[in-house]
């Protein structure tokens, strides 16, 4: 439990930093120049870590299934959808929906044990927990935005 939580929190901190760095790049370069650079850097860092920790073992891929080769393209889908969503809805509204969909789909994945995950029966308590989290996301994103607008109009 503690190990899992530690790594989940660590991932969240790194995602936050990465988003800020990437935004700085995309302010100068276009969406696809930024995405190409970001994924290229991700490849180099993964390759380096893999070589340091596993050496040549990194290149032994005994039980590859065909879809593993295409799985990385999902990352490009993420960028495309996020950019389009934010363009059409504005960042605050779009990100609130993105985070909600992320959590909703996570709950669904656990409940059916998707792709060989350990199936977790979803109880009422868990639905309620996720609803409270989604409520928190919406208050954080939309509430913050609304307060900002109000204080601007007061000036």
């Amino acid at each position: 439990m503690v190990v899992g939580l530690f790594f989940a929190l660590l991932a969240g901190l790194l995602v936050s930093l990465q988003n800020i760095f990437n935004r700085k790049v995309s302010e100068q370069a276009g969406t696809w120049s930024t995405t190409t650079l970001v994924l290229g850097m991700g490849f180099l860092s993964s390759l380096a870590m893999g070589l340091i920790l596993e050496g040549n073992q990194l290149f032994s891929l005994p039980s590859m299934q065909p879809w593993y080769w295409f799985s990385g393209m999902v990352g490009v889908g993420v960028v495309f959808c996020l950019v389009q969503g934010m363009r059409l809805l504005g960042p605050t509204y779009a990100i609130s929906i993105v985070l909600t969909a992320q959590l909703g789909f996570a709950l669904w994945s656990d409940s059916i044990g998707w792709l060989g995950l350990v199936q977790v029966p979803i109880t009422f308590t868990q639905w309620f927990g996720v609803l409270v989290i989604v409520g928190g996301v919406i208050v954080f994103k939309l509430g913050g935005e609304w307060q900002q607008k109000r204080s601007i109009s007061k000036m």
Binding site: M1, V3, G4, L5, F7, A8, L9, L10, A11, G12, L14, V15, L17, Q18, I20, F21, N22, K24, V25, L37, V38, L39, G40, M41, G42, L44, S45, S46, A48, M49, L99, Q102, L103, A106, L107, S109, D110, L117, V118, V120, Q126, G129, V130, I133, V137
Partner: peptide
């Protein structure tokens, strides 16, 4: 160099999902 974090993000995310499931991982991550 922001993209270079991906190695550690993927490692952490995968390790967390294997320990505490998808819902809890995404919640803590967010």
């Amino acid at each position: 160099t922001g993209g270079a974090f991906a190695a550690f993000i993927i490692f952490s995310n995968v390790t967390a999902i294997q320990h505490i499931g998808v819902t809890m991982t995404i919640s803590a991550l967010l």
